[in-house]
């Protein structure tokens, strides 16, 4: 070992200290991290402030919103909600989503709990497919129904509306008392006194 010794030749409680030079790779790491700091600050804070978190978030959201709008405008007019409902194929996935996302408040069989009962003929915000899709999308914040449009896809939401519609007339284990107004077969309010 060709260690460089400490010129003081002093020991502390028998502990000897040598005085080897600082390892080059160690100094290298130190210099590189300092240099990085010198470049990082002007790059992000002066040259490209649009890359800082909040600005980057705004830009990303804007890009996605524009893309979705363009796609919606380009998309050919598809079948109506009623046609999709009739076409079927949504039952299985909608049931799974209903159990995961809706059952905590509306019960797994749609009998209601924290939220309203789906098995009766009464609706608070209307029972047409359009009404249902709208409520699921936007929520009813003052009643505690949350908006699902950021967590579920448009097709998932449509399918949930179909599933909710299909629950009408079934018999749940425990049915919550009817809320809202009576609706007709299509889910439109019909003139009648509230229950």
């Amino acid at each position: 070992m060709s260690d460089q010794l400490n010129e003081t030749k002093h020991t502390f409680d028998g502990i000897e200290e040598h005085d080897n030079p600082l390892p080059g790779w160690w100094l290298g790491i130190f210099y590189v991290t300092i240099a990085l700091a010198v470049f990082y600050v002007p790059y992000y804070h002066f040259m490209h402030p649009e890359k800082l978190p909040a600005a980057a978030w705004e830009a990303e959201n804007k890009a996605i919103a524009e893309k979705r709008q363009a796609e919606a405008e380009m998309a050919p007019a598809g079948p109506s909600l009623a046609e999709k409902y009739e076409a079927g194929g949504w039952q299985e996935s909608a049931k799974a989503d209903f159990i995961t996302f809706c059952s905590p408040c509306h019960a797994a069989d749609g009998g209601g709990g924290i939220g309203p009962n789906f098995t009766d003929d009464y609706y608070i915000h209307g029972g047409t497919f359009e009404n249902l899709v709208n409520v699921i999308n936007e929520g009813v914040p003052e009643k505690g129904m949350i908006s699902w449009k950021t967590s579920l896809k448009p097709t998932q939401i449509e399918n949930l509306a179909f599933y909710v519609h299909s629950l009408r007339g079934t018999t749940p284990a425990t049915a919550k008392e009817p809320q809202g107004q009576k609706v007709n077969q299509n889910g439109e309010f019909i003139a009648e006194e509230t229950p």
Partner: peptide, 24 residues
């Protein structure tokens, strides 16, 4: 810095590294 050289019965590698790394 105390128990390692005691247990290993060897000298600390570099005094000047101690100084630089302590203050930085």
């Amino acid at each position: 810095y105390y128990f390692m050289p005691k247990a290993a019965n060897g000298p600390i590698y570099s005094y000047r590294l101690s100084i630089i790394h302590f203050w930085s």
